[in-house]
């Protein structure tokens, strides 16, 4: 029996392979297109921000507040730990300021354009806020446990040192979220009245002050380690927290006339912030970190003592900036 020609069978088999490969390629293209074209859900970042501002550390939870006050009262009654009471007051002040910053963004980011810039920032916003939330649980738990620790013991001191370390971690997570929120605000809020020179300068200054506060608490951490004697001058964050808290209160809350709101409606405010902008150009500075680092108490008032050689400042730009960031405040 003659063998049937295998030509038709081979050609049919090759066709099937071609079809299979073509299908695989099409599916791969479809998957890639889907991954590229379906936008990440930026609304999740907004929801995370919303939830965070509704349960801010030491602001929204009555239990946290109660435990914190208990701790502070406990510490104040112990002479050798009295130095901690100022730090604890400042921790509450910083926590309030952080809440005010997040509230500002929470009121506005919902109206942000869902553009590339927002998509780029939504992950750092969401991830860092979630991280801060986790650390907050730990802080709350620590406050609760400290109620049971004998107030004059080394265990109490160690607990405070650990609490500070966690608080620094909490601040760092929030700082990263706030930096991403700043970027989202300036690049995604469009040309609204409140996205202007003043908002850019104020929100950038908030970022730098936040950095300054963290740095001060890190220095405090270095000065107050477990197993060492508690120094009376261990605390390094007094000035930075005052400056930070006041700046946020004056510029991001409804307590005062916000320059962000008034920039296009008040010639004086506009002129002041236009000067603030020119300051960086004339003094050839990228940011305010060196100015903030020079904060000192001078005759009972806070002043920024950094000097600049060889700069011609006919408009009084530096004095304007100092007045905006909190120079010449009384204590």
């Amino acid at each position: 029996m003659a063998k049937s020609s295998s030509k038709g069978y081979s050609a049919g088999g090759g066709k099937k392979w071609l079809v299979a490969i073509a299908l695989v390629v099409l599916v791969a293209i479809a998957v890639v297109v889907v991954l590229i074209c379906i936008p990440p859900n930026t609304y999740n970042a907004i929801q995370t921000l919303n939830r965070t501002t509704n349960s801010s550390f030491l602001v929204d939870s009555s239990k946290e507040q109660e435990d914190f006050i208990n701790l502070r009262d406990k510490i104040e009654a112990v002479p050798k730990f009295q130095a901690y009471s100022e730090e604890l007051n400042d921790i509450a002040w910083v926590a309030t300021a952080v809440d005010e910053i997040l509230e500002f963004y929470n009121d506005n980011i919902i109206f942000a354009n869902n553009n590339k810039n927002l998509k780029k920032n939504f992950k750092p916003i969401k991830n860092n806020l979630n991280k801060a939330k986790e650390i907050q649980k730990k802080l709350a738990s620590s406050l609760s446990k400290m109620k049971e620790i004998a107030r004059e013991s080394d265990s109490m001191r160690n607990a405070i040192i650990d609490f500070r370390a966690d608080f620094i971690r909490w601040m760092k997570a929030n700082q990263k979220a706030v930096a991403a929120l700043n970027s989202a605000y300036s690049g995604s809020m469009g040309n609204i009245l409140e996205n202007n020179t003043a908002s850019r300068l104020i929100l950038n200054t908030v970022d730098q002050m936040f950095e300054d506060v963290i740095s001060s608490f890190e220095k405090t951490k270095e000065e107050d380690k477990k197993g060492t004697d508690l120094k009376t001058d261990y605390y390094k964050a007094e000035l930075s927290t005052i400056i930070f808290g006041r700046f946020v209160l004056e510029n991001l809350t409804e307590t005062f006339d916000s320059p962000i709101k008034y920039y296009y409606f008040d010639e004086e405010i506009k002129a002041k912030f236009d000067k603030f902008e020119r300051f960086f150009e004339v003094y050839k500075l990228k940011d305010l970190s060196s100015v903030l680092a020079s904060a000192q108490k001078v005759g009972g008032r806070i002043d920024f003592t950094k000097t600049f050689e060889g700069v011609e400042d006919k408009e009084g730009l530096y004095e304007t900036v100092k007045s905006i960031i909190g120079g010449n405040y009384g204590d």
Partner: peptide, 13 residues
């Protein structure tokens, strides 16, 4: 005009 143009953006929100 600048104020009104920005005001229009606020209006969208």
């Amino acid at each position: 005009k600048t104020v009104f143009a920005r005001f229009a953006e606020n209006r969208k929100d």
